[in-house]
Design a binder for these strands. Structure first.
Length: 417
RNA sequence: GGCGGGGUGGGUGAGUGGCUAAUACCAGCAGACUGUAAAUCUGCCGCCCGAAGGGCUACGUAGGUUCGAAUCCUACCCCCGCCA
């Protein structure tokens, strides 16, 4: 509501930092200056509900716009979800039941509002309009475009040239997304650079419908933890925002050094001047990259949890990874009856497998053979488990692998499960 | 309607009768090292028993040929491209 004047520096931040492309930049700037609350379009497919850092880049931009009084219209793509975004590889996806769509959407929204301001967001479902669509509507929508126009999209063109399949429904995808823009009278559509084509179709369709075309605000695609491909769930190189602090912290620490500055720029509020300083230090090798990365990990954890949680995650990282000490967060336990027990290595293996901490007995054996299983006594002394028997007592910790632990506790009766 | 290609372990993808639990790459795991869960190096990477070794299950599905099949035959299911 209360629109504030847009200072030059705010505008700079909004339109420059972490932005890949704005179409049409001058027009967006003019809209911002006019001061009218803008309708910001953001869509998502409830086929894959988890939000990861790759999505956050754009969501943070939405947030920044909201802070200036603008309104987010979030579109639940319950129809497009059935097609599957063709910018991915695989064409066909299983149809989701309405039930699945609803639960996915709920999960998504919960995470979405960790970043975006709920009070300045309106949630609408595609089925509000596509639910009433009939064949004549489909024909009239599709008749507005040609195959050649659709093949202008790079990934369609590539696949077509390579003789790889393109489903008819995939061609429909940009049209449906564009139609959303018409229905909500979007002023600006947000997306990653891979959304460019779809957003541009939206502009055309809006004009055909007699509306002013939306501006398109594209953010860069964030690379995943592997440092080479864009962050995505299917590639397994993602950091989800609902992961626990230790996980987020550790995963950030595992990104390649040269990705750090991108992450800083796209995901944090660390001021530009400071980033400039970091770059200088890195170039001059006057700082250990690890120290900067720890700062980054801290910032990102704090974004989705709290500063205190970030601090604790950092402490845990230093403890477990850097100093190779025992984690203070051991939730798994094994109960034994006596104050001292002599157990066969097989029994330890059974503990781990029965608790589903390790997939199979074979795998535990491999771990043992590789010297990865240790008993850590309370005085800190360690005993590497090999085949044969080993003495344990309550209070000991079994470490299996780099950072996985089970604590031995005393129980009177057997604790199973 | 016609012609052709294909379905292999989490992924990509080799393998056309025994040397194949199945090349290679990616992912994953472990160890070493280190400036990090980075990088690098080494090893592991179906399940079960085991000291070595052995057993079981697996290459779309179901049968068949063979001492022996992911590999040959038959039927079926599924996917894709091209031409019309």
């Amino acid at each position: 509501m209360g629109n504030r004047e847009l200072s030059a520096s705010e505008q700079q931040r909004l339109l420059r930092r972490g932005v890949a492309e704005i179409i049409v930049e001058e027009e967006l700037a003019r809209l911002l200056e006019a001061g009218r609350p803008l309708r910001l379009k953001q869509g998502f497919d409830p086929s894959c509900p988890d939000i990861h850092l790759g999505h956050v880049v754009g969501l943070r931009k939405l947030r920044q716009f909201q802070e200036l009084g603008h309104q987010v219209i979030l579109i639940v793509g319950d129809w497009t979800a059935q097609i599957g975004d063709p910018s991915g590889e695989s064409a066909t996806r299983p149809m989701l039941s309405p039930e699945e769509v609803r639960t996915n959407a709920e999960t998504y929204l919960k995470q979405f509002f960790k970043v975006v301001d709920r009070d300045k967001t309106k949630v609408v479902w595609q089925s509000e309009w596509f639910g009433k669509f009939d064949l004549s509507d489909v024909i009239s929508l599709t008749s507005k475009f040609t195959v050649a126009q659709m093949l202008a999209r790079e990934d369609f063109a590539k696949r077509h040239a390579a003789g790889r399949p393109i489903a008819l429904t995939e061609l429909l995808y940009p049209l449906l997304q564009a139609y959303d823009s018409v229905m909500i009278k979007a002023d600006v559509e947000f997306g990653g650079t891979d959304q460019k084509f779809n957003c541009l179709v939206g502009r055309e369709l809006q004009q055909m419908a007699g509306q002013p075309p939306q501006q398109v605000f594209l953010v860069p695609l964030l690379l995943g933890t592997d440092g080479s491909q864009k962050m995505s769930k299917s590639l397994g190189n993602y950091i989800a925002i609902d992961e626990p602090p230790n996980e987020i912290y550790g995963k950030v620490m595992s990104i390649p050094d040269d990705l750090m500055m991108d992450y800083f720029e796209l995901l944090t509020d660390v001021p530009d001047e400071e980033l400039k300083q970091f770059r200088g230090e890195l170039a001059a090798q006057s700082v250990n990259p690890m120290e900067l990365k720890k700062r980054l990990a801290w910032e990102i954890v704090a974004l989705f949890h709290t500063a205190a949680a970030a601090k604790e995650a950092e402490a845990e990282f230093e403890r477990v990874v850097q100093k190779r000490e025992v984690s203070v967060h051991i939730s798994e336990t094994v109960g034994i009856r006596d104050s001292v027990s002599v157990v066969q290595y097989r029994e330890i293996a059974n503990w781990l497998v029965s608790r589903q901490l390790v997939k199979s007995i074979s795998e535990v054996k491999r771990l043992i053979a590789q010297g990865a299983v240790q008993i850590i006594h309370e005085d800190g002394s360690r005993h590497v488990v090999s085949e044969g028997s080993v003495q344990i007592r309550p209070g000991d910790v079994v470490q299996y692998g780099k950072r996985r632990f089970v604590r031995i506790i005393n129980t009177d009766k057997e604790t199973e499960a």
